[in-house]
Design a protein around this nucleic acid. Structure first.
Lengths: 180, 180
DNA sequence: GTTTGGTGAGACAATTCGCCGCACCCGATT
DNA sequence: AATCGGGTGCGGCGAATTGTCTCACCAAAC
């Protein structure tokens, strides 16, 4: 049992960003990018909290949930994925995750999920102090950028993946990123 | 405890279709269209299986899940909704539903969900993670649903948080979620 | 040389958005 | 009872955005 938060995500950049964001808030965090290391690191750290990305190098992150819970029973796992679907959300919760969030997601939302999970035992009043800004425009921008990067900047392929007209994507990209 | 299946859906037509489809397969079924009757009927029938539509006459069907489980502990509840979102799916499973399906859905899928819940108490979830990202429209829908839930269904407050015009939010909510 | 696929951009119709108003309901206040 | 504030639903209208089609250009593959 440890107060450190384990962050599992094979996207090294995003992983590092998350770790830094956690630490900046005074929460110790440890990033893991290789699915095969997860079990070992978890056994070493016994993390009470885990941020788990679903699509880690081919292997489904879903299989890691039972493993993590066996290593540290009662630990809170928040599942994160860029390829969200209702089916995997249902599976993740059934396997014991406390929350399932679709990328892009704000760090505060992750922390909010942990807090919510912590408070469930007590008389929760759902007094969520968590700020939930992130306009839809901003969210869209983040998502587009991520998918675009995944397709190596190929606009046509990105538009297809997003089921959006290429011309529309062109126009959106031509604009500056929207704030908040 | 009873082998009858309780079908809760305020859409009388769809409800009747479901009941008939179940009975044609030799499964006794009882339809309920009024959310206020659910508790009473459940206490009378003690159904082992419940098909529960989420959006019943304004009141969220989610609140019925704990009630049903209290009346008939261990009963299997399959949640059904025309306005599927990850946020409500997560909530439904956390509250104890065994499956969450988006309309339109075939009757066989519902039966399959019950069978799956019967057969394996735990285990075996298909670990297939979709390889394609959410479309921007779908992402927007998920985000809106999540924020909306955080604001207890308050549309005005949600619109404010999203920095979006209330009228626009209304119109978006009136539409069914886009696929994929 | 030709085909295939990506890119940028103009033009125009269809759709959506932002914003106005109005009516209704409900609970609290006066 | 009357009023006031906030939430909700919805019609309408001008402005903005999107969908679609169209070019032309370029690079790599066949």
């Amino acid at each position: 049992m440890n107060d450190i938060t384990l962050i599992v995500d094979d996207d090294a950049t995003f992983n590092a960003v998350l770790v830094r964001a956690f630490e900046r808030r005074g929460i110790p965090a440890r990033g893991v990018t290789d699915a095969r290391e997860v079990a070992a690191v978890a056994r070493e750290l016994r993390p009470r909290r885990v941020v788990l990305d679903l699509n880690i190098a081919g292997v489904s992150g879903l299989t890691l949930i039972p493993q993590l819970l066996e290593i540290e029973p009662g630990c809170h796992i928040v599942v994160l994925t860029g390829y969200a679907s209702i089916a995997t959300a249902v599976d993740a919760i059934k396997l014991g995750a406390v929350q399932y969030l679709a990328k892009p997601v704000e760090v505060d939302a992750i922390l909010g999920a942990f807090d919510e999970a912590d408070g469930t035992d007590e008389g929760e009043v759902d007094a969520t102090v968590s700020s939930e800004p992130l306009s839809v425009d901003r969210l869209e921008w983040e998502h587009i950028q991520r998918v675009l990067r995944e397709h190596d900047g190929n606009i046509s392929a990105t538009a297809r993946a997003l089921k959006m007209h290429r011309r529309t994507l062109q126009r959106k990209l031509a604009k500056k990123p929207v704030r908040s």
